[in-house]
Design a protein around this nucleic acid. Sequence first.
DNA 1: GCAAGGTC
Length: 956
Amino acid sequence: MAGNRPIRALNVAEKPSVAKAVAGILSRNNLRVRDGRSRYNRIFEFEYTIRGQPIQMLFTSVTGHLMELEFDERYRKWYSCDPVELYQAPVRKTVPQDKLDIKRTLQQEIRSCQWLILWLDCDREGENIAFEVVEVCTEVNSNLNIWRARFSALIDREIHEAVQNLVRPNRSFSDAVDARQEIDLRIGASFTRFQTMLLKDAFNFNFATGDRSLVLSYGPCQFPTLGFVVERYWEIQAYEPEEFWTINCSHNSDEGTANFSWMRGHIFDYTCAVTIYEMCIEEPTATVTLVRQQEKLKYPPYPLSTIELEKRASRYFRMSSEHTMKVKPGTQWQKSYTNPVTLAILELRLTLSQPGLIFTLTIVQEQQAHPVWGPYAQRLLDPEAALWRNPASGGHDDKAHPPIHPTKFSAGESGWSQDHHKVYELVVRHFLACVSQPAVSAETTVEIDIAGEMFSASGRVILAVSFTCIKHLDLYVITYITKKKALVSWKNYLDVYRFESWGGSMIPTYLLGQQFTPTTLTLDSGVTRPPPLLSEADLLSCMDKAGIGTDATMHDHIKKLLDRFYATKDANTRFSPTNLGEALVMGYDDMGYELWKPYLRSKMEDDMKAVSLGTKRKIEILASCLQEMKACFSDAKLNKVKLFEAMEVFFDRTNRSGVEEQNAVGGVVRRCGLCRQADMVLKRKPDGKFMVGCLGFPQCRNVVWLPGSISEAAVTSNTCNVCTPGPVFLIQFKFRQLEIPPNYNVDHLGCVGGCDDILKQLTEICGTGPRNLSGTTASVRGRTPTTASGTNPASNVQRGVCSHCRQTGHNSSDCPSQVSTSGRATSRATDHANGGSSIACNSCGEPCVSRTANTANNRGRKFYSCQSQECRFFVWEDMVDGGARGQNNSRTNARGSNAASGRPGGRGRGRGRGRRGGARVNDTTFVSATGEPVSGRCFTCGDPSHFANACPNRGM
DNA sequence: GCAAGGTC
């Protein structure tokens, strides 16, 4: 390390704020600042000594990743190739245009340096960015000593320790990210192009896309996120409520009312419930068997992670995660490091180490000045109050982003919106709560016995309220006093954390052995309820658990679902899939693929960990993952009829076909010589005809027609050395032997640039159209039309096997055993529609059962479905009666058919049946005399004349 | 016009 003149070291941080903070700590704010080429990434200069070696330090930054992965130019246009080629197409990492200034600064500064010190975040992405910086720097200075500083907090001691203990960058960490990037790009681009080109023009979507063209994107994170939303939605749709019974007891006294719950909870057997209930009302005297006072602690939350902040802002303020991230600094705000909120909130690690604790105390001290929570901060700092508690470490540590805490006091800034105030308040109150004692309450539990059945009630008991002289402590409520001690409830952190509160209620005093007659004793019925739609906080939890996305990107994936018209969010921040979102998931699900589940991403995450640890090589996981996904992609292409069928459930077809349907697009042959704007590509029309056409169609109609006798054609990487301007890629043709003269070869490597006489001759001999020779390959190898595009019934029959029932003579859209959609239901189910009770399944012939829908859209609407799970027959009763309904019904109809046909009970779907612990009784009626009739009331409508099982409003 | 991951 030693040398005569000081070593010059270029230090690079991941973002400008970190460069500024670290340079400030190392130089003790004795530094010079100058601009670099990038206006945001300034350069700090100072002198420093590392292990006795004087160093001239230059400190600058990047802004996240410096490079992007992209396909070679040839594959970048959507129609340039079959998307399956994107699994092998060459990719490269380049510095995008908007980062070139940063690259120039780095290269300019590194030329005069001997060392490069990398201060990127200490996670995999940070390590990858480090190697991007290394690549850019070593391009102009190959003789560098490259070091990595490892730090996790912008705290003096940690920063000084990091620079005195420099290590080498970790290639394995970076490799893991390289693999992730490549897999994401190839999978995302291939599936996005495929499904967009296939479906965009084939259906009437009617979305207001504005100037944007509709993109049906697929991504390894966004699709599983959609999957969570759809899966919950299906669970709700398929939910079959179960009726249960429970016995409730209430008792009024001078101190109030106690509501006792049956300790059996609820039971599903009516006869059994009635028997027990009769025993109770025959002998209704209650005896108190237990009175227990117990201290209960309610702990403050853990320090805030980004996800936790998003979840709580959504829960407390109904603020979307995306909006919270905008309000929260360090993300999308231009010049965010000069923004007042940034000055007030900065991500800092809260540690229990001495400097951390001092730091924490400083933050609390600053907050004493606040008019609202200032007095609480004062109490926190008063040792006599005993309110202080060292914070728990928390369960969410990504090693790169420390918990969020306030760093600067503010009573509100002029530039702040309501939302800024809210987020700041949440961060500060959360922080103060984290360093506070838990709330303490004394809870009383009372158990009683009625005819051998046990009931219990719990809550807080008030015996006296006279405890006012305890200095500094906020007395909440005195709950129980014995001769020896008083059990009291202290709110502690709840005093400052206004977003949480004690639950529970008060109950009167009971003594052991006391006897009383219940005021009410009722047998009540109820039905279990499905889970609610996913809230934004639920969705974030699902993603976090499955490892979908990172802190910084989860909100983006959620927003993408809304932007792509895959899901909607209601006023309660709950998500439902749109028709489009549901259809896409349904399509892949029907193919048997779980591309919409989180497993793929989870497996990738495991693979990345293995690469990080060095137990697997990047090349291995790339090969295996891409091979698997390519096979999956090819299969999805073959099964695209499933996607069509799913779309047809919800949307009308257009008279156009998706481009993917019209043309089997091959590779680029040459640049179009006519428009000079687009490429000429090999295409195959639906009639099987090959041509080389301009991608600028219909603006440019340049086309080269090819012989009608071609059975196969593929663009090769060989180029013609005659035709100009080049390159003109040669095409490998295969001709049908019976359709060309015997002196021509079946295989031919040809050029469409004009030099190829053989091709010209065969075009002249065979013509450019396909031969309609019965029995030849030409007639049977034509493109398979899609389900609903068959305008010619004969051609449909010719296709052979129905993809639904595997029988011949019809296609899957006309399959008699197929689920009905709105347009077809009437004709299918008219045979036995007399009186609405005797319809036969048109698949198995067995009588259908009549049921009533209980879905949000169709509550109370009757339908018929086959009792057999094998048959998917389903029809609305009002459709049978001839009431053809409007297009809107296509969706609700499909819902019903799903519920009846087993979606989501079929392959790979969880079924919500039998979920217990749903709604509970909350009304009281009367005590019955012994014997019949049994008293109670219906849970569904509240009518005391019947139970929920006989309720006329009850759904299926 | 595609992914997801950093960040101004």
